[in-house]
Nucleic acid binder design. Structure first.
Lengths: 233, 233
DNA sequence: ACCTCACAACTGGCATGTTAGTTGACAGGT
DNA sequence: ACCTGTCAACTAACATGCCAGTTGTGAGGT
Protein backbone atom coordinates (compact mmCIF):
# COMPACT_ATOMS: atom_id res chain seq x y z
CA UNK A 1 0.00 0.00 0.00
CA UNK A 2 1.42 3.32 -1.04
CA UNK A 3 0.99 6.17 1.37
CA UNK A 4 -0.19 9.31 -0.31
CA UNK A 5 -0.10 12.88 0.87
CA UNK A 6 -3.69 13.99 0.88
CA UNK A 7 -4.90 17.28 -0.46
CA UNK A 8 -4.22 20.14 1.87
CA UNK A 9 -6.86 21.95 3.80
CA UNK A 10 -6.75 25.09 5.85
CA UNK A 11 -8.68 26.58 8.71
CA UNK A 12 -7.79 30.14 7.78
CA UNK A 13 -10.69 32.39 7.06
CA UNK A 14 -13.08 30.49 9.30
CA UNK A 15 -14.29 31.83 12.60
CA UNK A 16 -15.37 30.22 15.82
CA UNK A 17 -13.34 28.08 18.15
CA UNK A 18 -10.38 26.14 16.87
CA UNK A 19 -12.31 22.92 17.29
CA UNK A 20 -15.17 24.21 15.16
CA UNK A 21 -12.83 25.46 12.48
CA UNK A 22 -11.05 22.13 12.34
CA UNK A 23 -14.42 20.39 12.23
CA UNK A 24 -15.68 22.48 9.34
CA UNK A 25 -12.44 22.12 7.44
CA UNK A 26 -12.41 18.34 7.77
CA UNK A 27 -16.12 18.04 7.06
CA UNK A 28 -15.74 20.11 3.94
CA UNK A 29 -12.79 18.04 2.79
CA UNK A 30 -14.72 14.83 3.34
CA UNK A 31 -17.91 16.05 1.66
CA UNK A 32 -16.17 17.27 -1.47
CA UNK A 33 -14.04 14.13 -1.63
CA UNK A 34 -10.75 15.92 -1.04
CA UNK A 35 -10.40 13.07 1.42
CA UNK A 36 -11.36 9.87 -0.36
CA UNK A 37 -13.59 7.33 1.37
CA UNK A 38 -11.28 4.93 3.16
CA UNK A 39 -8.44 7.44 3.50
CA UNK A 40 -6.62 7.34 6.83
CA UNK A 41 -6.82 10.48 8.92
CA UNK A 42 -3.83 10.78 11.22
CA UNK A 43 -4.33 13.07 14.18
CA UNK A 44 -0.66 13.93 14.28
CA UNK A 45 -0.55 14.87 10.61
CA UNK A 46 -3.69 17.01 10.88
CA UNK A 47 -2.30 18.80 13.94
CA UNK A 48 0.95 19.54 12.15
CA UNK A 49 -0.72 20.71 8.96
CA UNK A 50 -3.25 22.97 10.66
CA UNK A 51 -0.85 24.15 13.33
CA UNK A 52 -3.05 23.21 16.26
CA UNK A 53 -2.78 20.74 19.12
CA UNK A 54 -4.53 17.42 19.40
CA UNK A 55 -7.44 18.67 21.52
CA UNK A 56 -9.44 20.53 18.87
CA UNK A 57 -8.65 17.84 16.31
CA UNK A 58 -9.91 15.13 18.66
CA UNK A 59 -13.12 17.03 19.26
CA UNK A 60 -13.65 17.53 15.54
CA UNK A 61 -13.03 13.87 14.77
CA UNK A 62 -15.35 12.80 17.57
CA UNK A 63 -18.11 14.89 16.06
CA UNK A 64 -17.46 13.58 12.57
CA UNK A 65 -17.54 10.09 13.99
CA UNK A 66 -20.93 10.73 15.59
CA UNK A 67 -22.18 11.91 12.20
CA UNK A 68 -20.86 8.82 10.47
CA UNK A 69 -18.38 10.66 8.28
CA UNK A 70 -15.37 8.96 9.84
CA UNK A 71 -14.85 5.53 11.35
CA UNK A 72 -12.68 5.45 14.45
CA UNK A 73 -11.01 2.18 15.30
CA UNK A 74 -10.00 2.51 18.96
CA UNK A 75 -6.27 2.68 19.63
CA UNK A 76 -5.65 2.08 15.97
CA UNK A 77 -6.74 4.30 13.11
CA UNK A 78 -9.33 6.80 11.97
CA UNK A 79 -10.58 6.57 8.40
CA UNK A 80 -12.94 8.52 6.22
CA UNK A 81 -16.03 6.33 6.15
CA UNK A 82 -16.76 4.30 3.06
CA UNK A 83 -20.16 4.36 1.40
CA UNK A 84 -22.84 1.85 2.15
CA UNK A 85 -25.50 1.63 -0.54
CA UNK A 86 -28.07 0.58 2.04
CA UNK A 87 -27.23 3.63 4.09
CA UNK A 88 -27.54 5.81 1.00
CA UNK A 89 -30.95 4.31 0.19
CA UNK A 90 -31.97 4.97 3.78
CA UNK A 91 -30.91 8.58 3.58
CA UNK A 92 -32.74 8.95 0.28
CA UNK A 93 -35.89 7.67 1.92
CA UNK A 94 -35.54 10.18 4.75
CA UNK A 95 -34.72 13.01 2.42
CA UNK A 96 -37.65 12.26 0.15
CA UNK A 97 -40.00 12.11 3.13
CA UNK A 98 -38.97 15.55 4.33
CA UNK A 99 -38.70 17.18 0.92
CA UNK A 100 -42.11 15.96 -0.17
CA UNK A 101 -43.70 17.19 3.04
CA UNK A 102 -42.02 20.55 2.53
CA UNK A 103 -43.01 20.71 -1.12
CA UNK A 104 -46.65 19.98 -0.35
CA UNK A 105 -46.72 22.63 2.34
CA UNK A 106 -45.03 25.22 0.18
CA UNK A 107 -47.27 24.46 -2.80
CA UNK A 108 -50.30 25.20 -0.64
CA UNK A 109 -49.16 28.35 1.10
CA UNK A 110 -46.51 29.88 -1.15
CA UNK A 111 -46.26 33.64 -1.55
CA UNK A 112 -45.60 35.43 -4.81
CA UNK A 113 -42.23 36.51 -3.48
CA UNK A 114 -41.24 32.92 -2.80
CA UNK A 115 -42.33 31.97 -6.29
CA UNK A 116 -40.17 34.77 -7.66
CA UNK A 117 -37.15 33.52 -5.73
CA UNK A 118 -37.57 30.02 -7.12
CA UNK A 119 -38.05 31.39 -10.60
CA UNK A 120 -34.91 33.49 -10.33
CA UNK A 121 -32.97 30.44 -9.16
CA UNK A 122 -34.14 28.47 -12.19
CA UNK A 123 -33.15 31.23 -14.57
CA UNK A 124 -29.73 31.21 -12.92
CA UNK A 125 -29.55 27.47 -13.49
CA UNK A 126 -30.32 28.01 -17.18
CA UNK A 127 -27.41 30.43 -17.43
CA UNK A 128 -25.06 28.01 -15.69
CA UNK A 129 -26.08 25.23 -18.08
CA UNK A 130 -25.29 27.50 -21.03
CA UNK A 131 -21.86 28.17 -19.56
CA UNK A 132 -21.39 24.48 -18.74
CA UNK A 133 -20.53 25.50 -15.19
CA UNK A 134 -21.11 22.12 -13.56
CA UNK A 135 -19.95 23.21 -10.13
CA UNK A 136 -22.11 26.30 -10.24
CA UNK A 137 -25.11 24.28 -11.35
CA UNK A 138 -24.51 21.83 -8.53
CA UNK A 139 -24.69 24.66 -6.03
CA UNK A 140 -27.72 26.29 -7.65
CA UNK A 141 -29.46 22.92 -7.57
CA UNK A 142 -28.80 22.64 -3.85
CA UNK A 143 -29.99 26.22 -3.36
CA UNK A 144 -33.25 25.41 -5.16
CA UNK A 145 -34.00 22.59 -2.74
CA UNK A 146 -32.92 24.65 0.26
CA UNK A 147 -35.21 27.47 -0.83
CA UNK A 148 -38.20 25.15 -0.79
CA UNK A 149 -37.20 23.70 2.56
CA UNK A 150 -36.77 27.20 3.93
CA UNK A 151 -40.19 28.31 2.66
CA UNK A 152 -41.80 25.95 5.16
CA UNK A 153 -41.17 28.70 7.69
CA UNK A 154 -38.87 26.42 9.67
CA UNK A 155 -35.40 27.93 9.50
CA UNK A 156 -33.50 24.77 10.40
CA UNK A 157 -35.22 22.24 8.18
CA UNK A 158 -32.77 22.76 5.33
CA UNK A 159 -29.76 22.24 7.61
CA UNK A 160 -31.28 19.20 9.31
CA UNK A 161 -32.13 17.69 5.94
CA UNK A 162 -28.57 18.19 4.76
CA UNK A 163 -27.29 16.65 7.96
CA UNK A 164 -29.45 13.55 7.59
CA UNK A 165 -28.34 12.90 4.02
CA UNK A 166 -24.62 13.56 4.18
CA UNK A 167 -23.69 10.28 2.50
CA UNK A 168 -25.99 11.00 -0.42
CA UNK A 169 -24.49 14.43 -0.80
CA UNK A 170 -21.01 12.95 -0.78
CA UNK A 171 -21.83 10.15 -3.20
CA UNK A 172 -23.40 12.72 -5.50
CA UNK A 173 -19.93 14.17 -6.07
CA UNK A 174 -18.99 10.98 -7.85
CA UNK A 175 -21.65 11.31 -10.51
CA UNK A 176 -19.98 12.36 -13.70
CA UNK A 177 -21.46 15.53 -15.12
CA UNK A 178 -23.22 14.76 -18.37
CA UNK A 179 -24.31 17.43 -20.75
CA UNK A 180 -27.83 16.14 -21.23
CA UNK A 181 -28.51 15.42 -17.59
CA UNK A 182 -28.27 19.06 -16.58
CA UNK A 183 -31.06 20.03 -18.93
CA UNK A 184 -33.20 17.12 -17.72
CA UNK A 185 -32.64 18.18 -14.12
CA UNK A 186 -33.61 21.68 -15.08
CA UNK A 187 -36.83 20.39 -16.66
CA UNK A 188 -37.67 18.50 -13.47
CA UNK A 189 -37.10 21.65 -11.44
CA UNK A 190 -39.37 23.56 -13.78
CA UNK A 191 -42.09 20.94 -13.29
CA UNK A 192 -41.83 21.42 -9.53
CA UNK A 193 -41.93 25.17 -9.90
CA UNK A 194 -44.97 25.09 -12.18
CA UNK A 195 -46.87 22.90 -9.76
CA UNK A 196 -46.00 25.25 -6.91
CA UNK A 197 -47.05 28.19 -9.07
CA UNK A 198 -50.42 26.51 -9.66
CA UNK A 199 -50.68 25.65 -5.96
CA UNK A 200 -51.16 22.06 -7.08
CA UNK A 201 -49.83 20.13 -4.07
CA UNK A 202 -50.35 16.75 -5.65
CA UNK A 203 -48.52 17.62 -8.85
CA UNK A 204 -45.71 19.28 -6.89
CA UNK A 205 -45.34 16.18 -4.74
CA UNK A 206 -45.15 13.91 -7.78
CA UNK A 207 -42.76 16.18 -9.63
CA UNK A 208 -40.41 16.40 -6.65
CA UNK A 209 -40.64 12.68 -6.03
CA UNK A 210 -39.78 11.95 -9.65
CA UNK A 211 -36.86 14.38 -9.48
CA UNK A 212 -35.41 12.89 -6.31
CA UNK A 213 -35.65 9.37 -7.69
CA UNK A 214 -33.58 10.40 -10.67
CA UNK A 215 -30.76 11.11 -8.24
CA UNK A 216 -30.84 7.77 -6.47
CA UNK A 217 -31.02 5.95 -9.79
CA UNK A 218 -27.81 7.69 -10.79
CA UNK A 219 -26.16 6.90 -7.47
CA UNK A 220 -26.93 3.16 -7.58
CA UNK A 221 -24.40 2.33 -10.33
CA UNK A 222 -21.59 4.02 -8.42
CA UNK A 223 -21.02 0.93 -6.31
CA UNK A 224 -19.68 -0.88 -9.37
CA UNK A 225 -17.81 2.09 -10.75
CA UNK A 226 -16.01 2.81 -7.49
CA UNK A 227 -15.91 -0.43 -5.51
CA UNK A 228 -13.01 0.85 -3.42
CA UNK A 229 -15.18 3.67 -2.11
CA UNK A 230 -17.84 1.29 -0.83
CA UNK A 231 -17.89 -0.97 2.19
CA UNK A 232 -17.34 -4.57 1.34
CA UNK A 233 -20.14 -6.70 2.71
CA UNK B 1 -31.59 3.52 31.07
CA UNK B 2 -29.43 5.77 33.17
CA UNK B 3 -28.94 4.78 36.74
CA UNK B 4 -29.62 7.56 39.21
CA UNK B 5 -28.32 8.13 42.70
CA UNK B 6 -29.92 10.93 44.72
CA UNK B 7 -30.68 12.97 41.62
CA UNK B 8 -27.17 12.35 40.38
CA UNK B 9 -26.08 10.16 37.51
CA UNK B 10 -23.58 7.40 37.10
CA UNK B 11 -21.74 5.82 34.23
CA UNK B 12 -21.54 2.42 35.86
CA UNK B 13 -23.06 -0.37 33.86
CA UNK B 14 -22.47 1.29 30.52
CA UNK B 15 -19.85 0.08 28.09
CA UNK B 16 -17.79 1.78 25.46
CA UNK B 17 -15.21 4.51 25.90
CA UNK B 18 -15.36 6.82 28.88
CA UNK B 19 -16.40 9.67 26.62
CA UNK B 20 -19.30 7.66 25.21
CA UNK B 21 -20.40 6.59 28.66
CA UNK B 22 -20.34 10.15 29.91
CA UNK B 23 -22.20 11.26 26.79
CA UNK B 24 -24.94 8.70 27.24
CA UNK B 25 -25.26 9.40 30.93
CA UNK B 26 -25.60 13.14 30.41
CA UNK B 27 -27.90 12.71 27.40
CA UNK B 28 -30.12 10.40 29.40
CA UNK B 29 -30.20 12.82 32.29
CA UNK B 30 -31.14 15.69 30.01
CA UNK B 31 -33.79 13.75 28.10
CA UNK B 32 -35.56 12.50 31.23
CA UNK B 33 -35.33 15.95 32.84
CA UNK B 34 -33.05 14.84 35.65
CA UNK B 35 -31.26 17.97 34.52
CA UNK B 36 -33.82 20.74 34.14
CA UNK B 37 -33.72 23.01 31.10
CA UNK B 38 -31.56 25.97 32.04
CA UNK B 39 -29.58 24.04 34.66
CA UNK B 40 -25.88 24.81 34.76
CA UNK B 41 -23.55 21.93 33.96
CA UNK B 42 -20.16 22.41 35.56
CA UNK B 43 -17.36 20.43 34.03
CA UNK B 44 -15.51 20.19 37.31
CA UNK B 45 -18.54 18.91 39.19
CA UNK B 46 -19.28 16.30 36.54
CA UNK B 47 -15.69 15.12 36.55
CA UNK B 48 -15.68 14.76 40.31
CA UNK B 49 -19.00 12.98 40.45
CA UNK B 50 -18.21 10.52 37.67
CA UNK B 51 -14.61 10.06 38.67
CA UNK B 52 -13.16 10.90 35.27
CA UNK B 53 -10.98 13.66 33.94
CA UNK B 54 -12.09 16.64 31.92
CA UNK B 55 -11.24 15.14 28.52
CA UNK B 56 -14.13 12.70 28.15
CA UNK B 57 -16.52 15.19 29.74
CA UNK B 58 -15.47 17.87 27.28
CA UNK B 59 -16.01 15.54 24.37
CA UNK B 60 -19.44 14.55 25.67
CA UNK B 61 -20.49 18.16 26.18
CA UNK B 62 -19.23 19.12 22.73
CA UNK B 63 -21.38 16.43 21.21
CA UNK B 64 -24.42 17.44 23.24
CA UNK B 65 -23.81 21.01 22.15
CA UNK B 66 -23.77 19.96 18.49
CA UNK B 67 -27.09 18.22 19.06
CA UNK B 68 -28.59 21.27 20.68
CA UNK B 69 -29.12 19.67 24.07
CA UNK B 70 -26.72 22.03 25.83
CA UNK B 71 -25.78 25.65 25.22
CA UNK B 72 -22.11 26.44 25.74
CA UNK B 73 -21.21 30.03 26.49
CA UNK B 74 -17.46 30.23 25.85
CA UNK B 75 -15.29 30.93 28.86
CA UNK B 76 -18.41 31.20 30.96
CA UNK B 77 -20.98 28.48 31.51
CA UNK B 78 -22.61 25.44 29.97
CA UNK B 79 -26.33 25.06 30.45
CA UNK B 80 -28.94 22.49 29.57
CA UNK B 81 -30.75 24.09 26.63
CA UNK B 82 -34.16 25.58 27.18
CA UNK B 83 -37.08 24.73 24.95
CA UNK B 84 -38.07 26.79 21.97
CA UNK B 85 -41.63 26.21 20.83
CA UNK B 86 -40.69 27.07 17.26
CA UNK B 87 -37.96 24.46 17.38
CA UNK B 88 -40.42 21.93 18.78
CA UNK B 89 -42.90 22.70 16.00
CA UNK B 90 -40.08 22.26 13.52
CA UNK B 91 -39.13 18.89 14.94
CA UNK B 92 -42.77 17.84 14.89
CA UNK B 93 -42.95 18.71 11.21
CA UNK B 94 -39.85 16.63 10.49
CA UNK B 95 -41.03 13.74 12.61
CA UNK B 96 -44.44 13.71 11.00
CA UNK B 97 -42.89 13.76 7.53
CA UNK B 98 -40.76 10.71 8.28
CA UNK B 99 -43.33 8.78 10.27
CA UNK B 100 -46.02 9.25 7.65
CA UNK B 101 -43.68 8.10 4.89
CA UNK B 102 -42.77 5.07 6.98
CA UNK B 103 -46.39 4.32 7.81
CA UNK B 104 -47.45 4.45 4.18
CA UNK B 105 -44.64 2.17 3.16
CA UNK B 106 -45.31 -0.31 5.94
CA UNK B 107 -49.04 -0.30 5.27
CA UNK B 108 -48.36 -1.33 1.69
CA UNK B 109 -45.75 -4.00 2.24
CA UNK B 110 -46.27 -5.29 5.76
CA UNK B 111 -45.81 -8.95 6.60
CA UNK B 112 -48.04 -10.96 8.89
CA UNK B 113 -45.19 -11.24 11.36
CA UNK B 114 -44.82 -7.47 11.50
CA UNK B 115 -48.55 -7.15 12.06
CA UNK B 116 -48.28 -9.64 14.91
CA UNK B 117 -45.48 -7.66 16.52
CA UNK B 118 -47.52 -4.46 16.41
CA UNK B 119 -50.53 -6.30 17.77
CA UNK B 120 -48.50 -7.74 20.63
CA UNK B 121 -47.20 -4.27 21.46
CA UNK B 122 -50.73 -2.90 21.62
CA UNK B 123 -51.88 -5.71 23.90
CA UNK B 124 -48.92 -4.87 26.14
CA UNK B 125 -50.04 -1.25 26.13
CA UNK B 126 -53.50 -2.32 27.25
CA UNK B 127 -51.98 -4.19 30.18
CA UNK B 128 -49.89 -1.20 31.19
CA UNK B 129 -52.95 1.05 31.09
CA UNK B 130 -54.76 -1.36 33.40
CA UNK B 131 -51.84 -1.20 35.82
CA UNK B 132 -51.59 2.57 35.42
CA UNK B 133 -47.91 2.14 34.65
CA UNK B 134 -47.36 5.50 33.00
CA UNK B 135 -43.64 5.06 32.54
CA UNK B 136 -44.11 1.62 31.05
CA UNK B 137 -46.79 2.92 28.71
CA UNK B 138 -44.52 5.75 27.65
CA UNK B 139 -41.87 3.25 26.64
CA UNK B 140 -44.31 0.91 24.90
CA UNK B 141 -45.66 3.89 22.97
CA UNK B 142 -42.15 4.71 21.80
CA UNK B 143 -41.58 1.07 20.92
CA UNK B 144 -44.75 1.04 18.79
CA UNK B 145 -43.48 3.93 16.70
CA UNK B 146 -40.00 2.47 16.49
CA UNK B 147 -41.44 -0.83 15.28
CA UNK B 148 -43.16 0.89 12.38
CA UNK B 149 -40.04 2.88 11.55
CA UNK B 150 -38.00 -0.31 11.66
CA UNK B 151 -40.42 -2.16 9.38
CA UNK B 152 -39.38 0.13 6.54
CA UNK B 153 -36.37 -2.16 6.23
CA UNK B 154 -34.04 0.71 7.08
CA UNK B 155 -32.40 -0.16 10.38
CA UNK B 156 -31.34 3.39 11.30
CA UNK B 157 -34.51 5.29 10.52
CA UNK B 158 -35.83 4.91 14.06
CA UNK B 159 -32.60 6.22 15.58
CA UNK B 160 -32.32 9.11 13.13
CA UNK B 161 -35.93 10.05 13.77
CA UNK B 162 -35.33 10.07 17.51
CA UNK B 163 -32.22 12.16 17.00
CA UNK B 164 -34.05 14.76 14.92
CA UNK B 165 -36.82 15.21 17.48
CA UNK B 166 -34.94 15.25 20.76
CA UNK B 167 -36.59 18.43 21.99
CA UNK B 168 -40.05 16.98 21.39
CA UNK B 169 -39.09 13.87 23.27
CA UNK B 170 -37.83 15.95 26.17
CA UNK B 171 -40.83 18.25 26.24
CA UNK B 172 -43.07 15.21 26.20
CA UNK B 173 -41.77 14.35 29.67
CA UNK B 174 -43.50 17.45 30.99
CA UNK B 175 -46.95 16.34 29.89
CA UNK B 176 -48.82 15.26 32.99
CA UNK B 177 -50.13 11.72 32.69
CA UNK B 178 -53.88 11.79 32.57
CA UNK B 179 -55.96 8.70 33.01
CA UNK B 180 -58.16 9.25 29.99
CA UNK B 181 -55.40 10.26 27.63
CA UNK B 182 -53.74 6.86 27.77
CA UNK B 183 -56.86 5.15 26.53
CA UNK B 184 -57.26 7.73 23.77
CA UNK B 185 -53.67 7.21 22.70
CA UNK B 186 -54.29 3.50 22.67
CA UNK B 187 -57.34 4.01 20.43
CA UNK B 188 -55.26 6.05 18.00
CA UNK B 189 -52.65 3.32 17.91
CA UNK B 190 -55.35 0.76 17.21
CA UNK B 191 -56.62 2.88 14.31
CA UNK B 192 -53.12 2.89 12.84
CA UNK B 193 -52.79 -0.84 13.34
CA UNK B 194 -56.15 -1.57 11.72
CA UNK B 195 -55.27 0.50 8.68
CA UNK B 196 -51.95 -1.31 8.37
CA UNK B 197 -53.76 -4.63 8.80
CA UNK B 198 -56.08 -3.66 5.91
CA UNK B 199 -53.11 -2.43 3.87
CA UNK B 200 -54.96 0.86 3.59
CA UNK B 201 -52.10 3.31 3.14
CA UNK B 202 -54.34 6.35 3.04
CA UNK B 203 -56.15 5.46 6.24
CA UNK B 204 -52.89 4.58 7.97
CA UNK B 205 -51.42 7.91 6.96
CA UNK B 206 -54.41 9.82 8.28
CA UNK B 207 -54.56 7.82 11.50
CA UNK B 208 -50.89 8.38 12.20
CA UNK B 209 -51.12 12.04 11.30
CA UNK B 210 -54.04 12.50 13.67
CA UNK B 211 -52.17 10.66 16.41
CA UNK B 212 -49.02 12.77 16.05
CA UNK B 213 -50.99 16.00 16.08
CA UNK B 214 -52.50 15.03 19.41
CA UNK B 215 -48.98 15.12 20.82
CA UNK B 216 -48.08 18.58 19.56
CA UNK B 217 -51.43 19.95 20.73
CA UNK B 218 -50.56 18.72 24.23
CA UNK B 219 -47.07 20.17 24.04
CA UNK B 220 -48.18 23.66 23.00
CA UNK B 221 -49.65 24.63 26.41
CA UNK B 222 -46.43 23.71 28.18
CA UNK B 223 -44.87 27.08 27.37
CA UNK B 224 -47.33 28.75 29.76
CA UNK B 225 -47.17 26.02 32.38
CA UNK B 226 -43.37 26.00 32.54
CA UNK B 227 -42.19 29.41 31.33
CA UNK B 228 -38.84 28.92 33.09
CA UNK B 229 -38.11 25.90 30.87
CA UNK B 230 -38.60 27.90 27.67
CA UNK B 231 -36.37 30.43 26.00
CA UNK B 232 -37.56 33.97 26.49
CA UNK B 233 -37.92 35.73 23.18
C1' DA C 1 -28.27 55.49 47.41
C1' DC C 2 -26.33 54.74 42.89
C1' DC C 3 -23.20 54.25 39.21
C1' DT C 4 -18.44 52.98 37.65
C1' DC C 5 -14.59 50.42 37.21
C1' DA C 6 -11.00 47.43 38.48
C1' DC C 7 -9.92 43.00 40.16
C1' DA C 8 -10.22 38.32 41.71
C1' DA C 9 -12.28 34.04 41.05
C1' DC C 10 -14.16 30.92 38.05
C1' DT C 11 -15.10 28.98 33.54
C1' DG C 12 -14.21 26.64 29.20
C1' DG C 13 -10.59 26.23 25.39
C1' DC C 14 -6.22 24.63 24.21
C1' DA C 15 -1.63 22.34 24.78
C1' DT C 16 0.86 18.56 26.31
C1' DG C 17 2.25 14.55 29.12
C1' DT C 18 0.90 9.68 30.05
C1' DT C 19 -1.41 5.23 29.43
C1' DA C 20 -3.12 1.32 27.24
C1' DG C 21 -4.61 -1.17 23.26
C1' DT C 22 -3.63 -2.56 18.37
C1' DT C 23 -0.80 -4.00 14.67
C1' DG C 24 2.57 -5.49 11.76
C1' DA C 25 7.24 -7.11 11.29
C1' DC C 26 10.47 -10.39 12.39
C1' DA C 27 12.83 -14.14 14.71
C1' DG C 28 12.66 -18.85 15.57
C1' DG C 29 10.69 -23.23 15.45
C1' DT C 30 8.48 -26.86 12.35
C1' DA D 1 8.48 -22.37 2.73
C1' DC D 2 5.18 -21.73 6.45
C1' DC D 3 3.18 -21.02 10.74
C1' DT D 4 3.58 -18.80 15.37
C1' DG D 5 4.61 -16.22 19.21
C1' DT D 6 6.95 -12.09 20.76
C1' DC D 7 7.81 -7.39 20.78
C1' DA D 8 8.60 -2.70 19.26
C1' DA D 9 6.34 1.11 17.20
C1' DC D 10 2.34 3.45 16.48
C1' DT D 11 -2.30 4.93 17.55
C1' DA D 12 -6.30 6.88 20.05
C1' DA D 13 -7.90 7.62 24.80
C1' DC D 14 -7.30 9.80 28.89
C1' DA D 15 -5.21 12.93 32.55
C1' DT D 16 -3.46 17.23 33.64
C1' DG D 17 -1.29 21.81 33.27
C1' DC D 18 -1.91 26.34 31.50
C1' DC D 19 -4.15 30.35 29.47
C1' DA D 20 -7.57 33.67 28.15
C1' DG D 21 -12.18 35.38 28.31
C1' DT D 22 -16.19 36.25 31.28
C1' DT D 23 -18.53 37.66 35.38
C1' DG D 24 -19.81 38.82 39.92
C1' DT D 25 -18.29 41.76 43.60
C1' DG D 26 -17.04 45.43 46.13
C1' DA D 27 -14.36 49.67 46.84
C1' DG D 28 -14.45 54.32 45.72
C1' DG D 29 -16.26 58.25 43.58
C1' DT D 30 -20.52 61.14 42.70
Amino acid sequence: MVTRTEGLISIDGLDGSLAQRVYRALRGGILDLTFNPGAVLRKGAICEQLGVSRSPVSEALARLSAEGLVDVIPQSTTRVSRFSMNEIREESFLREAVELAATVRVAVERTDDQLAQLSRNLRLQALLIEDRDFQGFFEADEAFHDLILGFTGFPNVAAVTTQMSLQVRRARMLILPEEGRLAETQDEHVAVLNAIRDRDADAACHAMSHHLRQLISRVEPLERMHPDYFRSH
